[in-house]
């Protein structure tokens, strides 16, 4: 058989074998057998000495051409086999992705903390600074500086826990107004979140411990409309763009004029439902212009400065937001309930 014939034979044989090879091992064996140091093509090259010298370059070129062609085919086969093997391996590794597994446990802050933080974020964006103070408070700050002298009948409305004649559990976050006015430079723009206490028996809507957030602004030329602007911005942030506020005249000893502030009912968007008792409004907070007596008692010139204050109850907002119907659940610490928070 001539070299040329042998080459053709090798070429045809390898081509057909490659078609049926499906493992890397078989391919490697073929590669060694044909292209290896002791392979068939090497043998052919070695046998070139027996050829006529003038034929050698031509045959050599032919052998190299075949080698190049075979190498290319084997590389192609190798890629095909590698891919197929990878596919097969992955197929064997298939998992049931629908199989249920336990979630990593993620905790949560308390509903009150969640609401409080939301409110803080909203007001600190408007330049309000968070200030905190004692829960066991002097009567002086809790009542007297809030325009509620001893034996004032409005004191009765706030069933107060007394430690002694001069020390109470603060009945509202309002004493922080006095503390701020007495210690901070003007202008003042603060919020004071925290626990407050009233001697109410525990039931679905009352708790002797609850949370409020006081807001206070003192500056020159502060107006009642600034209060409304601030609270409207807060209402929109808390409950969405469509929310508005309604101011109703009210009475607090430490503000004049005073206003009870309602917000569009979240549940019915003002149409009237069971949550808002058909009015379309939900009572959210009490507010007003800081009483001139309060300013003067706290050493601020009431002819030059004015201010507004508001107090928001956090429990009501949290209960509405999370659909908690009984206030006691907030203070029971049942993990089955709180683990639903996200």
């Amino acid at each position: 058989m001539s070299v040329v014939d042998t080459l053709r034979e090798i070429r045809e044989r390898v081509e057909s074998e490659l078609g049926s090879i499906d493992t890397s091992a078989a391919l490697d064996a073929l590669r060694v057998k044909v292209l290896g140091k002791k392979g068939e093509l090497t043998a052919l090259l070695k046998g070139m000495g027996q050829l006529a010298p003038e034929d050698r370059p031509k045959v050599g070129a032919q052998i190299n051409e075949v080698r190049a062609w075979l190498t290319e085919k084997m590389d192609e086969a190798q890629e095909r086999i590698h891919n197929a093997e990878q596919e097969a391996a992955m197929k064997a590794e298939t998992i049931d992705v629908t199989e249920p597994r336990a979630l990593p446990t993620v905790g949560s802050a308390h509903p009150i903390t969640l609401v409080m933080n939301e409110l803080i974020e909203c007001f600190s964006g408007m330049g309000f600074d968070v200030m905190e103070g004692p829960e066991v408070e002097l009567d002086h700050y809790n009542f007297e500086l809030m325009n509620l002298p001893k034996n004032h009948p409005a004191r009765d409305a706030q069933d107060t826990f007394y430690m002694d004649d001069n020390i109470v559990l603060r009945t509202h976050t309002s004493p922080m107004q006095a503390r701020a006015m007495l210690t901070r430079p003007l202008p003042i723009r603060i919020i004071c979140p925290g626990r407050v206490y009233r001697a109410d028996e525990v039931d679905a809507t009352h708790s002797p411990v609850f949370h409020q957030m006081e807001g206070l602004v003192i500056d020159e030329h502060v107006k009642m409309s600034d209060l409304r602007g601030t609270l409207e911005a807060f209402a929109k942030k808390l409950y969405g763009e469509g929310t508005t506020t309604r101011f109703r005249p009210s009475f607090f000893p430490f503000t004049e004029p005073s206003a009870e502030v309602d917000m569009t009912c979240v549940a019915c968007h003002g149409k009237g439902c069971s949550i808002c008792k058909g009015t379309g409004w939900i009572e959210v907070l009490g507010s007003g212009m800081v009483h001139p007596h309060v300013l003067e008692m706290c050493g601020i010139d009431s002819t030059k400065y004015a201010g507004f204050a508001f107090g928001i109850g956090l429990e009501r907002i949290a209960m509405q937001r999370y659909g908690i119907r009984d206030m006691r659940l907030l203070y029971e610490g049942d993990a089955r309930l709180f683990s639903q928070l996200r």
């Binding site: 803080i120 007001f123 600190s124 964006g125 408007m126 330049g127 309000f128 600074d129 968070v130 200030m131 905190e132 202008p187 723009r189 602004v217 500056d219 020159e220 030329h221 502060v222 107006k223 009642m224 409309s225 600034d226 409304r228 602007g229 601030t230 409207e232 309604r246 101011f247 109703r248 005249p249 206003a259």
Partner: peptide, 19 residues
């Protein structure tokens, strides 16, 4: 009270933040 408009606070800028 419905005549009370909504105005923005003016005056010196204050730094808001948490304690």
């Amino acid at each position: 009270y419905e005549h009370i408009g909504a105005t923005n606070l003016r005056g010196e800028t204050t730094q808001g933040g948490v304690s």
